[in-house]
Design a protein around this nucleic acid. Structure first.
Length: 504
RNA sequence: GGCCCCAUCGUCUAGUGGCCAAGGACACCACCCUCUCAAGGUGGAGGCACGGGUUCGAAUCCCGUUGGGGCUGCCA
């Protein structure tokens, strides 16, 4: 790290759509670089295109950065508020002979260059001496010889022949400045030392460098062009085509720290080969020089794995706090206390299984979703089209009914000092027919009931599970039943038995 | 078309001339564990795009080819 230089980097998104993970990674790498060098991380909103920019998107960017814990030292600056600065620079360029007015339209240029093999502007207005005016654009006069070298931390020195660079537009015919101009003016004005951005900007970099020199003697920033993130077809991620909005991942219950970890690893890896690590490791070891050169596919499956690891590493308390907002959002009519009461005994079981917070919500839906309705397909499969399910359900129902609801545990205890079932549980004796409505007892009952029909527990649990929890897969059955509670379980078992008779 | 970038298992990567008959992770398959599903454990399949050089020796360096991508806009 160059200690003599006061590092200033900027993240400069344009608010023209959802903020996607590619932008997030660029922001993250900028931020990491700023943090580890004690520099400043600046946010600049590039909204010079008034047609396509929208404050809504800006708000989304701000929220996403905050969610990812990428904090901003300066800004956001808005280019739309700095137009005067750009126009002043444009005037300077015109006066110094580095720019000229042009009244060509696209059709004229196309007509002139047709068949010449040249694509792009043909410098037609270079020597016409037009004065700047409404309806005329301002073009930069690029040199006809020489090369421009981009000094890039990731890619080394990249050379561009100046002849390959067209006289590009700086100011639109309606008087609005274009991003090329605005970016250079701002980077100079804001004292940016390192420009870290996606590789798609590499081809426009020589233009920026040429402009930079035409505008001032200041040192050109150091560049770092990051490989782009691509979709499964290996095309650059697009906010229109690919559904990769940061917001969506938050919505589906990705933990921000898992997202940050995954994004960090997407294009860079620490020397020891570890993949899941705390951010302080990245802060200590991240290096732009070590960033990969080739495009990376944003693999959601892998993100999910990372997220699962992060979820499982959470304490039960933390996990509860993370999950709670998602549950409250899904069940606005249920009070927080009621949710917490049911969640508490199951939280570690949920934590162990959920790859996302949204999955955590789904695992618990049998407790909260109204009205309860078992999955139709599963119901058909293991309850209705099963030769033993009806008898088994009835047997289990009968035995459950002989139990004492756990809710009335206290009164039961008060009456006899210690209930029969508790006695049995503590002595390890098998309970059958009598006992408390608790997981261990329920498991014993189902094991015994299944044995009556020559069924192993694995097989016997299926119809009971679908009848009461609604799906073939999910949380461990008996703990779930205990939390669901005696009356509700009885009710659901009866409803399922009803359904088997409907079909017979 | 022109300019530029890129190229190790399906995916993300380790590898910076010998320690590589290429290592790890996700995904996939099998088995174990198991009340379902996960998680976890064990094992398996799977890759240096191709062709020339350079070198005693190349995944690693050079050239070419091929392939992919980006830019080529009065978008950023």
């Amino acid at each position: 790290m160059d200690k003599e230089e006061h590092v200033r980097v900027r993240f400069a998104p344009s608010p023209t759509g959802y903020f996607h993970v590619g932008g997030a990674r660029t922001a993250l790498y900028n931020w990491l670089f700023a943090r580890q060098s004690g520099g400043k991380f600046i946010l600049r909103i590039e909204d010079t295109d008034t047609e396509r920019s929208d404050p809504t998107w800006t708000a989304g960017i701000l929220q996403a950065l905050s969610w990812l814990n990428i904090n901003i030292d300066e800004g956001p600056y808005f280019q739309s508020e700095r137009k005067d600065l750009y126009l002043k620079a444009a005037e300077k360029l015109f006066l110094s002979g580095n720019a000229y007015a042009c009244d060509c339209n696209r059709e004229d240029v196309l007509k002139r260059t047709e068949g010449t093999g040249h694509v792009g502007y043909d410098n037609y207005c270079r020597d016409r001496g037009l004065a700047p005016a409404d309806g005329r654009v301002l073009r930069f006069l690029t040199p006809d010889s020489g090369i421009t070298v981009v000094n890039d931390i990731v890619r080394g020195e990249v050379e561009f022949a100046n002849t390959s660079i067209d006289d590009f537009v700086l100011v639109k015919s309606n008087g609005d400045p274009l991003f090329v101009l605005a970016v250079v003016v701002d980077d100079q004005d804001m004292g940016i030392t390192h420009i870290i951005r996606a590789e798609e900007h590499l081809p426009t970099t020589p233009k920026a460098i040429l402009l930079w020199h035409a505008l001032s003697d200041k040192k050109v920033p150091t560049f770092a062009h990051l490989p782009v993130l691509v979709n499964e077809k290996r095309q650059k991620l697009s906010k229109r085509r690919d559904k990769v909005a940061v917001e969506e991942y938050k919505e589906m219950g990705i933990l921000p720290e898992a997202m940050v970890n995954y994004l960090t690893i997407l294009g860079w890896s620490p020397k020891d080969g570890s993949e899941i690590f705390e951010q302080k490791k990245a802060l200590a070891e991240f290096s732009l020089k070590e960033v990969n050169h080739s495009p990376a596919f944003f693999d959601e499956k892998r993100l999910l794995y990372f997220n699962g690891q992060y979820i499982r590493a959470l304490s039960d308390q933390d996990f509860t706090q993370r999950l709670l907002p998602y549950l409250e959002e899904s069940y606005p009519k249920i009070s927080r206390d009621d949710i917490l009461e049911k969640l508490e005994p199951l939280v570690s079981l949920v934590k162990e299984r959920a790859a996302t917070l949204r999955e955590g919500v789904d695992l618990l839906d049998f407790l909260f979703k109204e009205p309860f309705a078992p999955d139709e397909e599963d119901l058909q499969k293991v309850v209705i089209n099963s030769d033993f399910s009806r008898q088994l359900l009835e047997e289990v129902l009968k035995r459950f009914l002989a139990l004492t609801p756990a809710d009335s545990r206290n009164s039961a205890v008060n009456a006899t000092g210690k209930t029969e079932s508790e006695e049995a549980i503590t002595t390890g004796e098998k309970v059958s027919g009598h006992g408390l409505f608790v997981a261990e007892v329920l498991k014993d009952i189902l094991t015994e009931s299944g044995a009556l029909f020559d069924l192993k527990l694995a097989k016997a649990q299926a119809p009971i599970r679908v009848a009461t929890l609604g799906k073939k897969t999910g949380l461990p059955l008996f703990e779930s039943l205990e939390v669901l509670g005696f009356p509700e379980v009885i009710k659901r078992l009866r409803a399922a038995i009803e359904k088997t008779s409907d079909n017979k």
